[in-house]
Structures are given as structure tokens and as C-alpha cells.
Amino acid sequence: MHETILSILPYGINGLALGLNVAIVALALALIWRTVGMLDFGIGAVYLASAYTLWLAKSAGLPLVVGMAVAIAAGVFFSVLNYLVVYRFFIKRNAPLFVLVVVSLSLFVATENFVAAILSAERFYIIDSILLGWTLLGTRLNVAQIAKMAISLITLGAIAMFCLHSRAGLAILAVADNPRLAQGMGIELDRAYIRTFAIAGFIVSLAAIPDVAESGVDPYVAATPLFLALAAIIIGGLGAFKNPVRGAVMLGLAFHLAVWAFASRWQEVIAYSFVMAALIIRPQGLFGGVSTPTRP
């Protein structure tokens, strides 16, 4: 029994780390979904923008910390840009959800491919030695993992506080619940949306930076976090912001515990079957919540 616990521990801890990593992007997706009412695949493009900015900054010789700041700025900028240049056009014309999904997906695919065409598909590294780490309960966690876990929890707390206690945040929530009413009460929809995309871009860059610092950047790095985040939202639901985080943690644990319990080649099957089961039993998410919100 003691042995079983010991043997499962590394999987549990790493699973938790993966989950909290995924949770960050899931939060960004959830935020946009709840406020604007669209599934924003364009977040993948934002992730790439942030990631490559970090690399470009480092190649230009800037110190890492400065590079990170610039990368965060890039994330915010691109996210808002996506909205201003592309999405707003469709939202103003009351485009159906379907169309918005296709548009954001196209944006992501286009970005991936143009980056590959211009900068090549090669992977570039930011830090190429082994990252510092510490051993926790027999499992080694590196600084990037720990950073991501911390970021995830802090972001969750920050969003909760922002949304529930600040004017701008409450405005965003109001818009999420009832855009027309919010408008009627003088909350400017456009500004609320811009803020939402800015925050989402900020969050996504916080996920991209440690990821990329750890593993490097190439045009395809955004796909996996994006789809895992989507799976996390499906599992967790959207009722409260902590739900996608819970969903992400469960997904991360599923990925790792599947390897511990079965063969690793079944890793994906088990994790996604978990998603499927969650959907069949409770389509609104295991922890409850809104799904496709009404759009104005």
C-alpha cells in the first residue's frame, strides 16, 4: 500500500502540474466564451505571438526579464488586435456563433502557417540548459512547472477578485450575463470586450512564456495547449471561473494516472474517454455551468 502511494506520487504531482498549466489557457478561453460568447481559437495565435516575441527579444540580446515583459505586451496587443480587426466586424453584424468559430479557427491556422513560412518550422530555444528544479516528495519539479502552477492559482484568484470587486470586472460579468441589459445600463459593450480580450491575452502570454522558456518555440507549440484547454472547459464547465481550472486539473491527472495505471499508449484514449464520459453524464460540466451563452 505504501509502495503504491509512493509509486503513484510522481504521476499525481506531475499530473497536477500539467493540469494547472492547461488551466491558464482554459481560463482565458472561458473568459472570452462567457463574455463575448465565442469560442476563440485565435488564442492560439496570441500564444504564438507571445512566444515568438520572447524568442525575438532574446535573440536581440535583451535580458530575459525584459523579454518577458515585451512578450506579455505582445500577447495583450495581439489579442486586442484580433478583436478590433477581425472579430468586432462579425460581432457587430450579429454573426452566428458558427461563423465566429470558423473565423477564429482560420485566424489561428493562418498565423501558424505564415509563421512557419516566414520564420521556418525550426524550433528555437530560449533557455537551453536544464532548468533549475526542486524535488518534492520524490518528484522533481522544475522552475517552469512551478511557475506555471503558481501563475495558474494566482491568475484564478486575481480574476475572481477583479471580476467581483472592480468596476471594470463587474462590467464584464454584467455583459456576460445579459449584454442588452448591460448596454441599457450604460456599460459600453465595445470597451468591455476590449478589456476582456486584453485580459485574455495577458493570461495566455503568462502561459506561453514559461512553456516556451522551458521547451522552445516553433509554429506548432500552441495547438496542444489550446485543445487541452478546450477539453478542460468541457470537463469542468463554466459556471464559476474555478470550474475550468478544476476541469484542467482533472484532465492533467487523467493524462498522467492513465500511464501509471495502464500502458502509456492508452494515455490519450483514457484521457479523452474521460472527457466523453463527463459530457455524457453532465454535459454542463462536472461542476456545472453555462455553455453556449446567448449573444446580443
Partner: peptide, 25 residues
């Protein structure tokens, strides 16, 4: 059957994940 429950509110998500799972299986 699960996707159409609750007036098909979760239809989009369920069908999207259905495709993720199909390949894996």
C-alpha cells in the same frame, strides 16, 4: 442522445470532442 439533452444546448461542445475521441480510439 447525450448531445440533444437539455434542448441541445451543449451540442457544439459534445460534437467537437466526439471528433477528438474518434481518432484516438
Amino acid at each position: 442522445w447525450p448531445a440533444l439533452k437539455d434542448r441541445a444546448r451543449y451540442f457544439m461542445i459534445i460534437t467537437f470532442s466526439m471528433q477528438l475521441i474518434f481518432i484516438t480510439i
